Amino acid sequence: MSSPDTMLYLCTHCFRRFPWVALSKQEHRCPRCRLPIRRCAICDQRFEPREKEHLYCKRCDYNLMKHAAVMPPSMVKATEEDPDGYRNRDGASVTERWKEIQTAAGIYDEEFSDPSPSPSP
């Protein structure tokens, strides 16, 4: 049986075989596939990102997804309507725009709206 020093392990990205000491400690990637260590934008811990655009460590990313109060509405529909991301609202008021945002996000807060003014006698 071979000793642990001569055994080869798979890189988690390219699946090539390398000795254990050649793989990164966090994501077990080879020197070719390894991304530079970053600092998390929230907790300031060092982490090895899985992709180049990741800004948060796994723990903070999980907590953002789990505890996010309201997820923003999808922008895919807006980009299909207008490539610039703007829609012609023809002078829509702030109240009308807020109702559009609430509908897109699935927020229903009728109990928080202002009561209609009572008629004067």
Score class of each variant (00 low, 15 high):
S2F: 08
S3C: 07
D5Q: 08
T6C: 04
M7K: 09
T12K: 11
H13T: 13
W20P: 00
A22S: 08
S24V: 01
H28R: 14
P31V: 02
C33N: 01
L35S: 01
L35V: 03
I37M: 14
R38I: 02
A41I: 07
A41H: 05
A41C: 06
C43I: 06
R46Q: 09
F47L: 05
E51A: 12
H54A: 12
H54M: 14
L55V: 13
C57R: 01
C57A: 05
C57W: 01
C57T: 04
R59Q: 14
R59Y: 12
L64W: 09
L64T: 07
L64N: 13
K66A: 13
H67T: 06
A69K: 11
A69D: 08
P72K: 09
P73R: 05
P73C: 12
S74K: 10
K77E: 13
E80P: 00
E81N: 11
P83I: 11
Y86V: 05
D90N: 14
S93T: 15
R97D: 10
K99H: 11
E100M: 13
E100F: 06
A104G: 08
A105L: 08
Y108L: 11
E110C: 04
P115K: 07
P115R: 08
S116K: 10
S116A: 13
P117G: 03
S118C: 04
P121E: 01
